[in-house]
Design a protein around this nucleic acid. Structure first.
Lengths: 353, 353
DNA sequence: TTGAAAGCGGTACCAC
DNA sequence: GTGGTACCGCTTTCAA
């Protein structure tokens, strides 16, 4: 049955299109035509059947690298994520990525997620991406992307570089998730409900600085419109001890309104405040972000800033356009909007605290 | 300056090793040796410098596909995740993936995450993976992997197929995350604290069935050891209405101990119970899973099952061994352990509710 | 209707 | 110490 020695556990070489051709008794060219649907009017139905059967029999799977080497373009779309931020992802972003990959597939691309190491320079990171010769790179969550990186990628054949995140990079298409606006609308809401001594949680977690910084800045900007309003940064690590310290800072600073970075930090802080007997929203109002189910489960119900991410298929369409349309100039194509969902923790809910 | 017409936005072709060779006035062979560190004793220092300079000047980045085409093996490790489960990831798993990718890089591999579409057959999914000719495929979270898929991957040159998740697939290396054990230890704890009418939350969320099923089964198995103990499945969607219905089912069934699938569902259910005036743990004891910070923030503090995932670098080592050592036979190499962290929600905390 | 052959970018053997 | 060259798997033009 088998012409190789009996100690061959698996065929050492995968079946190639030549093997299929030999098996079907045709040329490699014919195999290529048939298997790529270019056979109309070129190859007889009988031959096509033979080829398909042979491919089936051999379990033939085309070699994407060889194909893209020849064709000069790959179908790979790299979704870059800073490795140190992955754990901080909420379900919001995870869901986005999942549906984005599916949407990409509908355009014929293969989207893969690449965790970029934080201990590498942006240029080295870009080089690692470039080696894969992706059709496009989409950086998310502030994966390191400098102007030089973009240039490197373009030089090495990447058709499109997009960035989905805090700041648009020169040369790249941008989908701006405006972190400042998130901080601004949160602060504005607190100010509108009469709070003047604001606190803004700054997570003490690796990799979150590119989000927390702008959010703090946005809050400060919003406060400038209100004479006498102050903004105090509140460092907070995801531990109860840290929350207790933040609670103390709130009391000592007579802070009466806090933007807690996101819903999870808000929960942490709410617990610390409540354990210390602080009334929410009576003494301190609290605003989270992301508008998770969590926000509605807390007591008092948590006011939260909801950011609308662009629809995954819209981003996929943008990627496709950036790849295929050379005249599509880089720039900010989309900007997310943030809006407050008022609830009890700022005294806006149906019933008071 | 530029010899191409002024409408050339980017150089149409990336620099190749030939270009580097031409630029440096040497042959492609020399370039290859120098750039791969095989130059010792073959190429003069002066020539090496010239080559490196040329590569630098041109912004040369090797073409991974061409390299792996020639060498017959790629450095790609595919981490497959079922797309419909991605949003259900907790920070635990996300953190694991991030550190795993980093660990892989230390072994010289490039790990990328590939979201497998749920609407494809396992075989089609495997084919999509195989096209990329990865060195290894690691399926996680029950990404579809049948015996046939494994065979297909092996036939097409994948050196190792590993599965990290509920059930080991024949032919693949397995890292078993024992979902049954999670359900079993949770139920055992409830039973040990005197509960007999158990409820087990079964999330009504796409893609979680491969986890919830075994967890329920594990709970049932544990209950069998206690005469008179019953187990009632409690369907639960991530909405407050659904939680209210589950609460009602708990009351009507006189359930006195609930394993709530994970900490988040536990929080949802706890809130519904508390809003209805049910005392925890007095009337109903509650156990979550994942042991998130969340569990400690709830009142009463939530008893939770902690699963220890294998260390990322251990898994990376396993992958490397499976790739490089052909005599390393597939089988279960690692099995996670689950253990209960007792807290107030089952009456085990420092202080009673 | 089909096949021969060139070539995508790199590697590595072998000759000089 | 360096260069020529065959070849990895696939696509596609051109000729038969």
């Amino acid at each position: 049955m088998n012409d190789s020695p009996r100690n061959a556990p698996t065929p050492p070489t995968p079946p190639t299109s030549s093997a299929v051709a030999r098996h079907a008794g045709v040329s490699r060219a014919t195999v290529s035509y048939v298997l790529n649907g270019q056979a109309a009017g070129r190859v007889s139905a009988a031959t096509q059947a033979k080829v398909k059967q042979a491919a089936q029999d051999l379990g033939y799977v085309p070699h994407a690298a060889a194909r893209s080497l020849r064709s000069g373009s790959s179908a790979l779309v790299l979704i870059a994520v800073p490795a140190d931020k992955v754990p901080a992802f909420g379900p919001l972003f995870a869901g986005f990525v999942a549906r984005f990959q599916t949407a990409l597939e509908e355009y014929g691309y293969t989207g893969v997620l690449h965790g970029a190491r934080a201990d590498r320079s942006p240029l080295d990171t870009a080089r690692a991406w470039a080696e894969l010769r992706p059709a496009a790179v989409l950086t998310t969550f502030g994966a390191p992307l400098t102007e030089e990186s973009v240039a490197l990628l373009h030089r090495s054949g990447t058709r499109a570089v997009l960035s989905l995140g805090p700041a648009p990079t020169p040369g790249a298409h941008g989908i701006t998730i405006d972190q400042e606006e998130i901080g601004a609308v949160a602060a504005a809401h607190l100010l509108a409900t009469g709070r003047r001594a604001l606190g803004v949680v700054v997570p003490d977690e690796r990799g979150l600085d590119s989000f927390s910084g702008p959010r703090l800045a946005g809050a400060r900007a919003a406060a400038r419109a209100f004479p006498g309003a102050t903004v105090t940064p509140l460092p907070l690590a995801p531990t109860e001890e840290s929350a207790a310290r933040a609670r103390q800072a709130i009391s000592e600073g007579h802070v009466d309104g806090v933007f807690a970075y996101n819903d999870e930090y808000a929960m942490l802080l709410m617990r610390a405040l409540q354990d210390a007997g602080v009334d929410i929203p009576g003494e301190v109002a609290l605003v989270g972000a992301d508008d998770l189910l969590l926000a509605r489960l807390l007591r008092p119900r948590l006011t939260s800033v909801r950011t609308e991410l662009p629809a995954p298929h819209e981003v996929a369409a943008l990627v496709d356009r950036a790849i295929t349309d050379p005249s599509f100039a880089p720039g900010v194509s989309y900007r997310t909007k943030a809006q407050v969902e008022p609830r009890d923790s700022t005294g806006d809910g149906a019933g008071p605290a």
